[in-house]
Write a protein that binds this DNA or RNA. Structure first.
Lengths: 139, 139
DNA sequence: TACTTGCTTCGAGTGCACTCGAACGTTTTA
DNA sequence: TAAAACGTTCGAGTGCACTCGAAGCAAGTA
């Protein structure tokens, strides 16, 4: 639907702010079970509810989930993400700690990128040894 | 000039070729338990033994372990590494498959690097919003 | 009116990669 | 010679991040 399209494009705000759990599941690839679990463990700030108690996710929630998805890719433990989420809920006086946490994460990501580039170099050498069509270069 | 020699010179290894399990554990950071486990599941080609049956690791084993360590960093499943090790044991006729496996891994690594760089960009924006001394440009 | 979707709580199961300990015998080393 | 290191087999435990199912009820939809 248009919902999928708008989020998929640039995660720009569309104005819709009342996504049901199944919509969010479809959008994020997470299961409803996992979404409820995220909320339960505090990884997702309290989600709005309809007047009858059903979850209604906002764009903001979707952005947060996208961010969490990225952090997950870095290998950051869920516990650390929960910590960050908690700090956000605690308000302005936790700004410094939040920034520090993000900066530490940034350093980790940089380290991981370096490790991967290093691995890539080794792979290239090995692949070179197998003599690809381009003719094996030595060493 | 053997391949082993040239590799050794770039990795700081000596010409020693009879490392005990505890030496290898110290060198790699893996436990003796894990090293035996690696051998058991076929992730480590059969290790040489002393005349009394104790393991004697070679430089070659050490290199392999280093390589495995790098692959682990990429998130490659142990099963895939075992597969690659098996192919090496099977001889020359598996060259193509090995190269293909390495190339697929290379593509994965490239993808992961891209994902991490993407995450890094997001982190930089967020950190910028917290107003660091280094002055984030932004949004 | 059906049927689908959602809610809650609870606990168990999964897959991965170790990780550890026991038990007990052999080999190496100080 | 005695302690430390090594060997084997076996099975259980750990930590993480889900993942699933069941039970039973409420709400939304065609």
């Amino acid at each position: 639907m248009s919902v999928t399209e708008s989020i998929a494009s640039t995660t720009g705000l569309t104005g819709k702010d009342r996504y049901t759990i199944s919509e969010v599941a479809a959008l994020t690839g997470l299961t409803a079970h996992t979404l409820r679990w995220y909320e339960r463990i505090g990884l997702l700030p309290q989600v709005d509810r309809s007047h009858t108690g059903q979850r209604r996710f906002t764009e903001r929630d979707l952005h947060w989930l996208t961010f969490v998805g990225k952090l997950r890719l870095t290998g950051m433990p869920v516990a650390d993400m929960v910590r960050y989420a908690e700090l956000m809920r605690e308000g302005d006086h936790t700004r410094d700690e939040r920034r520090e946490l993000l900066e530490a994460t940034r350093r980790d990501v940089l380290t991981r990128i370096t490790e991967l580039q290093d691995t890539l170099a080794v792979l290239d050498i090995k692949i070179g040894h197998y003599g690809t069509a381009s003719g094996g270069t030595s060493s």
